[in-house]
């Protein structure tokens, strides 16, 4: 028989571990949780349509993840979605004319924001807004445009912006 002290300590450890696990489940794997933050700064961008972008989605440059989407709000004055991105402090020197676009990982995968660097010498400051923001490509819009053959005749304001790779 072990001493009562050992039993008490192990039981305490076990119960503590159990409650820590419950706490982890409640805060870390549901959407009402709190994420652990590291050294970083914020950028915002406003989009006409963000498609299926969600908080926590990656922000990448040339395919390398440099940050996360922290917050998505709808602005009632602009009628636009305001996306707040948290970029790691390692990537401080992003030119302040870089543009942001929403891409899809794979055909049906999750969406992420891609930043394409511009030519400016001045980097973005904390809290600054990305001026050039290209919307998500909504598959249904593309299909309906193709079906009704109006994409070619009306390249108007409602056309979702094509991927920047196609523009260049």
């Amino acid at each position: 028989m072990r001493s009562t002290r050992t039993i008490d300590i192990s039981t305490g450890l076990f119960v503590l571990l159990g409650f820590a696990a419950i706490l982890f489940m409640v805060t870390q794997i549901t959407n009402r949780g709190y994420s652990l933050k590291s050294d970083s700064y914020r950028l915002t961008a406003s989009f006409e349509n963000i498609g299926g972008l969600k908080t926590g989605a990656p922000v990448s440059m040339a395919g390398v993840t440099i940050g996360r989407v922290e917050d998505i709000q709808y602005d009632m004055q602009l009628y636009k979605a305001i996306v707040t991105m948290r970029i790691s402090d390692k990537y401080r020197a992003i030119p302040n004319d870089s543009d942001a676009s929403i891409y899809t990982a794979g055909l049906l995968g999750g969406q992420y924001i891609g930043l394409t660097p511009g030519g400016s010498d001045v980097p973005y400051k904390d809290g600054e807004q990305v001026i050039m923001a290209n919307d998500a490509i909504v598959l249904e819009n593309l299909i309906s445009k193709y079906l009704f053959n109006s994409a070619a005749t009306k390249p108007g304001e409602s056309t979702p912006a094509p991927a920047p790779a196609a523009q260049e």
């Binding site: 959407n31 989605a57 996360r68 990982a105």
Partner: peptide
């Protein structure tokens, strides 16, 4: 990030 954020959402 996708692993945890898709789980969270």
């Amino acid at each position: 990030g996708s692993y945890w954020s898709q789980m969270r959402s």
